[in-house]
Design a protein around this nucleic acid. Sequence first.
DNA 1: GGCCATCAGTTGTGATTCCAACTTTACTCA
DNA 2: TGAGTAAAGTTGGAATCACAACTGATGGCC
Lengths: 242, 242
Amino acid sequence: MANSDPVYLRVVEDLRRQITEGLLQPGAPIPSRHQITRKYGVGETAARHALRVLAQEGLIIGRVGSGHRVRQRPDLLPLHRAQAHFSTDMHAIGRRPTCDVKTDSAEARPDIAIRLRIAAQSPVTRTRIVYRSDGKPVQLAVSYEPVVYNDGTDDITQVAHRLGGNGLKLTEVTEHVYARVPQPVESDVLDLPAGVHVLHVERTHWAGDKPVETSDVIIPCDQFRLVYTLPAPYGDQTSPTR
Amino acid sequence: MANSDPVYLRVVEDLRRQITEGLLQPGAPIPSRHQITRKYGVGETAARHALRVLAQEGLIIGRVGSGHRVRQRPDLLPLHRAQAHFSTDMHAIGRRPTCDVKTDSAEARPDIAIRLRIAAQSPVTRTRIVYRSDGKPVQLAVSYEPVVYNDGTDDITQVAHRLGGNGLKLTEVTEHVYARVPQPVESDVLDLPAGVHVLHVERTHWAGDKPVETSDVIIPCDQFRLVYTLPAPYGDQTSPTR
DNA sequence: GGCCATCAGTTGTGATTCCAACTTTACTCA
DNA sequence: TGAGTAAAGTTGGAATCACAACTGATGGCC
């Protein structure tokens, strides 16, 4: 009873459950359209629709000729986690992700010093990462870290792990989000047409009450979208009946 | 030439252009499936797909039996704008949006005082708004405003307009986003099951360099989703060829 | 005038079929 | 053995037909 739900939702919910419960690990192949029709006894339309919904949720990712695979769990909101998908996703769809990482030393600008709660002009390690998809720059991240945390040998992109090794535990991430290109950030490398909207994320990683790293991330808006999922049509309402 | 694009994308782009250029104002009806098939000379599948894409973009909203209409422009990311859709959207899909607004005076808690850059225990106007959909509470917002800005007669939900009338111009909104339920916020009114993820937005409206209002917004994550739109399949890549 | 039933129109969902483009695998042949 | 080729499988796109549930408006009836 209570099973007047659309057919495709049955497929969606079953696959989603398997993914969220870990039965299907990231990278695992998803049954193809035809396999779904046989396995669930549904039509091709329903199978295709189910795959589309899951893909749009970000749980799976498809590739022509190759099939769908479980994506790294995007979960819900954290921008930093979504950003972590960059490399994985680009690979998954056959683009070549690259990134330039340039690290140098600098004196903390006043705004950066405030964010890191250190004295202005303190020495910081500045890391500038340009993310590229097939050579085209699509994302820019500039991170600042007090030199005291940087032993100079590690990959600065893995602050969390390194700090974890130092006995510090990252407890929180705060993010300030703007919808524009702020002045102090060099965004010319992204080669954006004038007037394009960008997401500017000021992100600070905290260990306890101590900021350990802060970064500016510039993301053109056509890569991100905050969708207001309504509990109704076209939505996927994460199993409302259970 | 250069028109090997999918057919449905032609429809999507044309309608989207009309919407973004203002030819189709918010509330205006969108051609129905059958009208699209005739108007654009495409099949029903393409028409349906186009409408689905636009709906998922948030540009239009459909209602069984009634048709699609242009939604208030959600643009891309701003949470506060997405939130502003609450009432409109609920109406559009036939739910009854209501909200309780309770206003009282209080002394600023230390954290609130910092956010408003006023002295702790200064008098503030506190507004607690519970958004409901068909009676079910789905969103909670608690705002704080220095009493100096509140003349006591206006609707506090329209801070921007009121301040605009006072000659102040809101220039910016900063948002801190957490993915948890913080302690100081009363979230029991939302009647959330334990462990449910929520979006906690600390939002501050600025007029110049002066904070004029700050608020905590609690949104269960099943209402919002940050989708990482890939420049590839199922995406709608906002006219990449132009 | 007011109320109710009917009816055309619309959306959401579904089945079925087909095709182009692509990937992967297996196979053939030099 | 190695390279090129063929075949099978997969996705994205598309056409066509169908049906249930719902909305809005029309018109008839009291």
